[in-house]
């Protein structure tokens, strides 16, 4: 029996005259890792931001389990708790220490007691390998460390699904690995994940499914072996070739 966590039906999104998403449908199973690839401007970020309605879709429906996210009366703060989001630019709160960043959601949104939130946050920071950085401000952390704090911050809300938008693109090459390792660990633990990335090795090793976006539609999708080795579409093959070139 299918256990669908995220269901997207015919999603459309325009910015003024520019139609960025032109009817995207997708189902994500519990524990599935979906890697989204596609050229710059193809609508990948917009798609992720529609999922927690940081962007307002123009048409189509989105469900998290059986709760409709796109409903008129949806309690947005409440559904967003269940959707973790990690950004390219980390977006840590610079006026708070690492552990305060991780505690912020549970304290402010879930009204958890300080003691419990601190306990939980320090476990999560330990999990992402930062148990020695609890009281350090983001400004004093490397990009890779900041991104791991951001992952811990999202995990603190115990989300049902996590969205990653090019989370290693702003990092120096030598710091990419430590973040991908944490993401792989989450995938192994059964976290449901949608990951926009240009890291094809991550896609090959961790993805259950790879989805190719092109000009606001899903051009093709399938298991990583198929997309990376035997893509049907010429455009997908060309896109992947170009990436390998850039990676060289």
């Amino acid at each position: 029996m299918a256990d669908v966590v995220v269901r997207v039906e015919d999603l459309h999104k325009s910015f003024d005259d520019l139609e960025v998403l032109k009817g995207v449908s997708m189902e994500v199973q519990r524990g599935e890792v979906v890697v989204i690839i596609g050229a710059s401007g193809s609508g990948k970020s917009t798609f992720l931001k529609c999922l927690n309605r940081l962007e307002e879709p123009n048409r189509g429906r989105i469900f998290l389990e059986d709760v409709e996210i796109t409903g008129q009366k949806t309690d947005l703060p409440k559904v967003r708790r269940n959707i973790g989001m990690i950004f390219q630019q980390f977006n840590l709160f610079p006026h708070m220490s690492a552990i305060q960043n991780v505690m912020e959601g549970p304290r402010t949104v879930l009204r958890m007691s300080g003691e419990r939130a601190r306990e939980h946050a320090s476990q999560l920071l330990d999990k992402v390998g930062l148990s020695d950085k609890l009281d350090v401000k983001p400004g004093q952390l490397s990009g890779g460390q900041q991104q791991r704090v951001a992952i811990a911050r999202a995990l603190a809300m115990e989300p049902k699904v996590m969205l990653f938008d090019e989370v290693t693109s702003a990092l120096d090459p030598e710091l990419v690995g430590e973040v991908l390792t944490v993401m792989k660990q989450l995938a192994d633990e059964g976290m449901t994940m949608l990951v926009v990335t240009h890291e094809m090795q991550f896609g090959e090793r961790v993805a259950d499914r790879v989805v190719m976006f092109d000009e606001g539609v899903i051009l093709e999708e399938g298991p990583p072996e198929k997309i990376f080795q035997r893509a049907e579409s010429e455009r997908t093959r060309r896109f992947l070739n170009q990436l390998h070139w850039e990676g060289e």
Partner: peptide, 24 residues
């Protein structure tokens, strides 16, 4: 980015203002 990260955690607009934007 700060607003988006805060909203994504499930904060209300008032909480974003009070906890994140105004202190900074």
């Amino acid at each position: 980015g700060q607003t988006q990260a805060s909203l994504a955690l499930g904060m209300t607009n008032a909480q974003v203002m009070r906890r994140i934007l105004i202190p900074q």
